[in-house]
Design a protein around this nucleic acid. Structure first.
Lengths: 295, 295
DNA sequence: AAACATGATGCCTTTCGGGTATTACTCGAT
DNA sequence: ATCGAGTAATACCCGAAAGGCATCATGTTT
């Protein structure tokens, strides 16, 4: 195998067509350069330069090899730069998970900030429910999640991005939609209810149960995604408690009503979460510049 | 700058994620391999591998650099092969010049042979008159010419490809076309004549003057290319002496008549010619396999 | 024919890379 | 808590390789 020094030597001689000048350019003397080229030719297995004792010229093989040699040197020069850029988080890939609902509220502005802070980093977006995001962050398939509590504070660090109110989603023209005041507990105590799954949407389930007097006998469906929930409301299957950002889904046939107390309280939280052992330099740089470390 | 050995070492460790096994794969011991990687990292300017004393894993920068390293090694492995292929004439470029007339006769079959003998060589075809071909062969812009004598036998080697008769081209329906015997000297002594240029088509000019009793007073045009000549005949400007291969041009409005004696004599020669100092290995191989050296 | 230019070769010194032996550290088992 | 196994890093030595200087061989110019 040849060496990079031999390639550099060959390129210099091929361009100067003169061993002495090429040696000067390489800050060395002519004899070792001659031997370098000889070794290179031996390694390649063919003559690259035709030298009669007066002049030097490229053989056809030498001409082709010159191209390859230049490509090699260029690649060799670029590779460390790329590596350093990635190590310092200025380049690379950032894999962000987000829930369907967060996609309609915070994701857009967040991506704008990301593009500003680390413009050369490719962002890989994946719509995932909170549980899948946690899993992804643990196994390293994901760098940053936009998810809801709870999560293990020892493994994950987080930053509260967003608080919002809970709303009551009702079918268009529903009797409650005619109210001019916020909905109160008594208003929905007899309504058929589309409820969050206690296993797959634990956060919403617990939140609703904690904050509102739910009649479990009224539950007609149990679903895990807010989008599904709103679709079922549109299909007049019942009413549902959804985060304010669900209003941004733009589905026809649904109205969203404020619930008494919720507008000030805004109990629904969305967090940016990440694995404490920051393995992706791009994420490290992003968090630094977003000043997310203080929490 | 790093070395190819360091790259190979890094690739092995990155793939095995274990210094000992990687060293084994490289037929060396573990300690120098460790130092190799350290030097590589120092040369790159960033950590490529994360090793706690229990396990080894790639950093993001290391992952990216692994790709580059593999590309470099692949390129480095291919370059000498390419160079050797070119040096042995099995790859590369062969630049062939040809005259318009030869393009209609011998060029096709010749290219078929070329494709058979050196299939991976790119053929670069250029339509040039004999003089331009000579020039190209001298300056190295051309490897092989299909041209007509004379040329300098000291500089050029050649091989007679083709002999052909001279024909008389006449406009369609011309009185001589009604003859049932070959045309004789007396038949065209009063015909308006389209003649070869004595400077740009020396070969044909000399040949015609030598073989036939030309009335120079009859010359109405002097042209350098056979195609032009035949076009002028079709335009009824006169008659012309052209090589038999001109019949292959397929122009309408022209008839080609045999000339007494010419059918046996076939005085028009087409040669393959090349510079004796064979600089293109592909040409050397072609000539060997075509057995053109004997002449 | 002599002087010059240029690439190759001989010889010496220094540098560098690999091998063996050993160390330092971590993890898992007892 | 201690010991042993596993693994990467370090110390030290030796031989190969690379570079520099002096010189040679050869072809060109005057």
């Amino acid at each position: 195998m040849f060496t990079f020094d031999q390639l550099a030597g060959f390129i210099a001689v091929a361009e100067e067509l003169h061993f002495g000048r090429a040696a000067e350019r390489l800050n060395m003397t002519q004899p070792p350069l001659s031997r370098q080229i000889q070794k290179l030719e031996k390694a390649i297995g063919t003559e690259l330069l035709e030298r009669d004792n007066r002049k030097v010229q490229l053989t056809p093989a030498g001409g082709a090899f010159l191209e390859e040699a230049k490509r090699l040197m260029a690649l060799a020069a670029r590779a460390p730069v790329t590596a350093r850029r990635i190590a310092t988080g200025r380049s690379g890939v950032l894999r962000i998970g987000f829930t369907a609902a967060s996609g309609f509220s915070i994701l857009g502005p967040l991506l704008e900030e990301v593009a500003e802070i680390i413009p050369d980093v490719d962002v890989d977006l994946q719509e995932l429910v909170t549980g899948e995001q946690i899993e992804g962050l643990l196994t390293g398939r994901l760098d940053l999640g936009l998810a809801r509590p709870p999560f293990d504070r020892d493994t994950f660090d987080s930053h509260l991005l967003y608080r919002e109110a809970m709303m009551l989603a009702v079918p268009e023209g529903h009797r409650l939609a005619r109210l001019t005041r916020p909905v109160e507990d008594a208003d929905f105590k007899d309504e058929p209810l589309i409820m969050h799954s206690p296993t797959k949407a634990t956060y919403f389930y617990d939140l609703v149960v904690k904050l509102l007097p739910i009649q479990h006998a009224n539950v007609v469906h149990t679903v895990s995604q807010v989008l599904t929930m709103v679709s079922l409301v549109a299909a007049r299957r019942g009413v549902a408690f959804v985060p304010h950002s669900a209003t941004l889904l733009g589905l026809k046939g649904v109205e969203f009503l404020p619930i008494a107390g919720m507008d000030t309280e805004q109990p629904v939280e969305l967090h940016a979460i990440w694995n404490r052992k920051l393995e992706n330099p791009a994420l490290r740089r992003l968090l630094q510049d977003l000043e997310f470390r203080a929490e």
